[in-house]
Design a protein around this nucleic acid. Structure first.
Lengths: 232, 232
DNA sequence: CGAAAGGTTGAGTGCTGTCAACGTCCGTGG
DNA sequence: CCACGGACGTTGACAGCACTCAACCTTTCG
């Protein structure tokens, strides 16, 4: 029995579109890799292209300007796909935000395999379309929103993300345990760390959120926060 | 003989991955539509989803905040694909920047057809991955660049885009006939019309560009402009 | 417990948005 | 052909938001 059968993301990652035998074949040229928080899986500009799935933990994609200013382009959670199939060069840096485990393939191997499996390509298409939607939604945030709206939007989005297994407190508050530090949030929102900090302080003073510990944020009034996100 | 055989974008649009018989079938539920400059093909939030190809002209995708601030999310030229297959709702407004002609399908029809044609889905995947690259490159611009860098980047990108059939003047200058007005550029770059105007004036005063007519920009020194785009 | 990393707060500056006036281009109609 | 009007673009003054620099505080981990 192969390792994939026991994989945590067997039914959520792209592998879900493959049957046992196909997964077996794909697995032959894939391997798992563990990352410590902050470790880089792939650098922007690298020649060696990796394709993969996040099995556990959180990973970010980022790019930077020539002066070293970073912009986070996306965040991948367990089950999410990372990498750029059918591409020539890596144009994003992939960094672990938490300790993480990923399943990686060499791009060439993966590409060839994908071309032989339309169901996998279809799943890939769906995921890519979703990523494009996310990226474009973020463009609206980066291009048109002020700092207050950006931070509120960010928190609302994270809250929505985990609304499935939401650890809600009796009074309806939502507890967020972020894999992000302040600098990560700043890179994501196109702001500086100081501006993020000030906005979070403002939200706390307004009673909309609490910050019991670093990296933990409690949303006390999600509706009011959503209103902030919409600029009201 | 069907109309597609004579289509200007028969070999550049997604149709290129289909043979005669398949194009015929697809064409059965498609139709052409002419748009005047400024005309809207589809509104953000619309239920009726359209999928299509740009045959002639230029079209933009945009979204806006609740307060009515617009952000352009992408620009589609002849041969480019527009729309969101396998999606529930339109989250972008599609507007003609110039008089344009498009070939449109109902989303449901197109989706069903695509699922039966892996080659088409593969092409669609390639295009979507490319769009995602573009969107992420733009995120870097929107999140990290100042007004001067944004305008310079914009011009350099347009120049590169048409470097194929580039109408270059003897001295190496590049002539750009933009389908964009100042407001369009502002929406694209996440700036105001006034800031765009000031930056263009600054570039003209610095001798890097000329603006012989509205919507025409001549790049006198592409290298220097590229340097500006990189923040030097 | 101590040190380092991470986060907060404050003061000051500068870039970009806002508001307003003016100038220029272009299509229309006399 | 010229005059006109409206759309589009430019320029200026000013204000405010976010960035920079710097000091200080807090949390976390060895």
């Amino acid at each position: 029995m192969n390792a994939c059968a026991r994989c945590e993301v067997r039914d959520t990652a792209i592998c879900r579109s493959l049957d046992e035998r196909e997964v077996d074949e794909l697995n032959r040229f894939g391997r798992q890799k563990c990352l410590r928080r902050g470790e880089v899986l792939q650098w922007e500009g690298d020649e060696s292209l990796l394709i993969g799935n996040v099995i556990e933990g959180v990973v970010k994609l980022s790019a930077s300007t020539r002066q070293g200013k970073d912009q986070t382009l996306g965040v991948a959670y367990a089950g999410d796909f990372i990498g750029r199939p059918f591409g020539a060069r890596a144009d994003q840096t992939v960094t672990a935000l938490s300790d993480a485990r990923v399943c990686v393939f060499r791009r060439a191997d993966f590409d060839a395999f994908a071309r032989r499996h339309p169901e996998l390509e279809h799943d890939l298409l769906q995921r890519t379309l979703g990523e494009l939607d996310n990226a474009r939604a973020w463009m609206l945030l980066l291009g048109q929103m002020d700092a207050g709206e950006r931070v509120a939007s960010f928190l609302v989005q994270i809250a929505r993300r985990q609304s499935g297994g939401a650890p809600r407190q009796p009074d309806g508050a939502v507890v967020l345990d972020l894999p992000f530090g302040r600098q990560d949030i700043a890179d994501l929102l196109g702001l500086t760390i100081e501006t993020v900090s000030r906005q979070i302080t403002a939200l706390r003073r307004a009673g909309l959120i609490d910050t019991p510990r670093l990296r933990t944020i409690v949303i006390r009034d999600l509706d009011a926060l959503s209103a902030c996100a919409d600029g009201e």
